[in-house]
């Protein structure tokens, strides 16, 4: 068996294979349910109902998608330039810390929200600046540095929550003080849990798309990602482009932390992010790094998580089935994308 490139993949190939990937994901899901001792079809049904079965469920899915859109965009932007930012998790927490610092009384009035968003973005951007400068100046691999920063940041957050930022009234729990009301993102519709962070995430996706397709910077980012050598020869400031990309990416990831704190949780705790930064990588890859695609795949992945939560409550199947499903979905999709470009021949 060997692989052979397909010169011009047909439309059927390009659409059919991803569809097949989704079907394969479902089959694996049913297999997992069977292993866990539940009825496969019922399990799938419960996931779907749990994610989309009611207004409440849908809103919950969209809420869960919000930070994933931001981290997915952060990854998509960086990966376009072949800047491997694996540190969206750390940048998310940097944004969250800033949001709490500014939102618990340091600032007041209507400006708190925009100011905290801006400063959060700066914090996230600053966090990625180090790795990118190490990369451009000394050639240090950013995969390693950004990944390590995730662990450093998690430890830093637990230090803050056990020490300087610990809520004195928190009965000893490691969590921060709650935000003042002005520092919180309002809900889109009164009485429903969905907050404005979701709308902003969609705006951010459109913004990134416009940057990529309509601006000179977007052109540079794509060129540097495709061929740094040709970009340099054409006179593009390759290193400056990488730094700008990093700032944009870090800022977007930080907005995930900002919107989670200001829109949903209202405070900083160690479980603020169940790995949104890492899941953002899956979201971005599933979307083939397309910013508008990120919105769709973020909602899809969020739906699997929310649906699996509901299903596990109903059927007693462990929740980490959601992690497995997203992983399987990613693997199937990557395989499907590969198979649109090459075919397997025998011999």
């Amino acid at each position: 068996m060997r692989l052979e490139p397909v010169a011009n993949p047909s439309t059927a190939r390009r659409l059919g294979l991803p569809a097949l990937a989704i079907a394969a994901t479902m089959v694996v899901a049913m297999g997992l349910a069977l292993l866990a001792g539940a009825s496969p079809l019922a399990t799938l049904g419960q996931i779907a109902v749990g994610a989309l079965g009611s207004k409440l469920a849908i809103l919950e899915t969209l809420n869960r998608a919000t930070p994933l859109i931001f981290t997915g965009l952060a990854v998509a932007v960086a990966f376009r330039a072949k800047l491997w930012n694996i540190g969206a998790e750390a940048q998310l927490y940097a944004g969250a810390i800033v949001t709490v610092l500014l939102g618990t009384g340091a600032l007041g009035g209507p400006l708190v929200l925009p100011v905290s968003a801006l400063v959060a973005m700066l914090a996230g951007a600053a966090l990625l600046l180090g790795p990118v400068l190490l990369k451009t100046r000394l050639g240090v691999d950013e995969v390693v540095t950004t990944l390590l920063l995730n662990f450093i940041m998690l430890l830093f957050v637990s230090y803050l929550l056990e020490g300087p930022m610990k809520d004195p009234m928190g009965m000893g729990w490691p969590k921060s003080q709650a935000l003042i009301p002005e520092a919180r993102l309002p809900r889109i519709v009164d009485g429903l849990r969905l907050h404005w962070g979701f709308a902003l995430a969609i705006l951010a996706a459109i913004g990134v798309w416009v940057i990529q397709t309509r601006t000179a910077l977007g052109f540079e980012i794509r060129a540097v990602g495709q061929s740094p050598e040709a970009a340099r020869f054409a006179g593009m400031p390759v290193n400056a482009v990488l730094v700008k990309t990093a700032l944009l990416s870090g800022g977007l990831a930080a907005l995930a932390g900002w919107s989670e704190v200001a829109g949903l949780k209202g405070l900083l705790s160690q479980d603020l992010s169940p790995g949104f930064g890492y899941t953002g990588i899956i979201v971005a890859m599933l979307a083939l790094l397309h910013p508008l695609g990120v919105v769709v795949t973020a909602v899809f992945v969020a739906g699997i998580f929310v649906g699996s939560d509901a299903m596990s409550r109903a059927a007693g199947v462990p929740t980490y089935i959601a992690d497995m499903l997203t992983a399987v979905a990613l693997l199937c999709m990557v395989l499907a994308i590969l198979l649109t470009k090459v075919r397997v021949v025998r011999g």
Partner: peptide, 19 residues
């Protein structure tokens, strides 16, 4: 490797230096 970017179209390659 230097003169063009293979997956860019002709328009993008034409303005690579003067965009």
């Amino acid at each position: 490797h230097q003169g063009t970017i293979g997956d860019f179209d002709l328009t993008e390659n034409a303005v690579l230096e003067t965009y």
